[in-house]
Design a protein around this nucleic acid. Structure first.
Lengths: 221, 221
DNA sequence: ACGTCCGTTGACACGACGTCAACTCGCGGG
DNA sequence: CCCGCGAGTTGACGTCGTGTCAACGGACGT
């Protein structure tokens, strides 16, 4: 029994090694320039061996993407835990996502690419479904924060938590992606830094959450 | 002179043929499965010839993407032209983008992929810069609608037009992308159709535009 | 000590890419 | 009228990355 145990652990360990290597190569070369040989070399394994542990390169990348979603969700949970009112929690999630994009750009890129793919949950491979599940948990965190906000009065009560969570998620993601990818260009054309753009965007969304009735104005600077 | 003229026209015509073919293949196979041979066959040309008119496949795809951005911008302009107040114009742009995504999914996919790329306007190839320019024009349309809205009082006056246009663009894009790609999954998990999600999301953004002071409530379904 | 099984590897075939020399053809000059 | 030049076009080649296969080696059970 302990032998099988050890074999299973070793197998898991080698899978980790491969994903680690892929992560390193992704950070250095980017996905488009990455090859199986690069991963194998970084992991100091034979290229053939990769196919024993993973279906193909997409499978490996999806495993790294899964890590990215996990990291993101953890940041969301931490943001919720460190704020009191629902509105502040949501603001915290937005800022956490901004930090995530800046501090772990590789993960962010993978998440962004994953988001721009059509996912049929039915025929989707296992690994893709794991990513979808993790994304769902992140969405759940946002929905919970909205419920908190509705309860404590910091968020408009007429918002459906799940719908609004998705809207916020899509909006925030789109906003940050815009800032991250086109930010440098914008700075030159409009003299507008990505940071300011994202900040004003998050304030904009926050105002929509607080709603017309509540005094949710926070454009004090 | 007329000979050179004709040669130039023929050259342009053949470029169009190639881009047409690429567009067809793209709609059928998707970008990942498309090969140069596919495009050549669809255009009834030799594969080698493609390299005379285009750098590589990315170059061709970028040309199709440029068409997509053009189509999008035209829809935006039409939406603005057919509404009176700035707020309605912005709502119209949002709906136009939704229609765009639904009616021309190939273009939308290309735009989405373009948006999720890091673009250094300095070292970017010519064709990419053309896309960026077209996107800029679309953004200009939105900014103009915001200015109209501020002027006629339908939009909060404390919003910077350009910043807000970008925020709206990023948000709308992210929202529609979420609905388009994960919509089917959402329907199963949350019994929430993509249409309803997008609609409520656009209302959410519209409320943020109208602002706390104005009576911008329009959630009467 | 020996057979077996699992992990591992080098070698192969295939497909796609990008390039090159060679070919065709319409046009202008001798 | 014939010739040759140049632009346009093509088939063939070398290269690279992928995915699979049979063969190898070492650890484990008997």
């Amino acid at each position: 029994m302990s032998i099988e145990e050890r074999q299973r652990e070793e197998k898991e360990q080698r899978r980790r090694t491969i994903v680690d290597a892929a992560e390193t190569v992704l950070a250095e070369n980017g996905r488009d320039d990455m090859t199986m040989a690069d991963i194998a070399e970084e992991a100091r394994l034979s290229r053939s061996l990769l196919y024993v542990y993973f279906e193909d390169m997409d499978d490996i990348v999806l495993a790294v993407t899964h890590r990215g979603f996990q990291a993101m969700r953890k940041r969301f949970e931490a943001a919720v835990a460190s704020h009191d009112t629902g509105l502040l929690q949501l603001r915290g999630i937005g800022e956490a996502y901004v930090d995530f994009a800046r501090e772990e750009p590789t993960y962010f890129h993978l998440v962004a690419q994953f988001e721009s793919r059509t996912a049929n949950p039915e025929e989707a491979p296992d690994r893709m479904r794991k990513c979808l599940g993790e994304a769902d948990r992140g969405l759940g965190v946002m929905a919970e924060a909205i419920r908190n906000g509705v309860e404590d009065g910091s968020v408009r009560a007429d918002l459906d938590p799940v719908q609004t969570a998705m809207t916020l998620w899509g909006s925030t993601h789109g906003l940050i992606q815009l800032a991250a990818n086109k930010g440098e260009g914008l700075k030159q054309r409009y003299d507008l830094s990505p940071e300011i753009l994202v900040d004003s965007g998050l304030r904009f969304l926050g105002a929509a959450l607080a709603g017309p009735s509540t005094g949710g104005r926070d454009e004090g600077d």
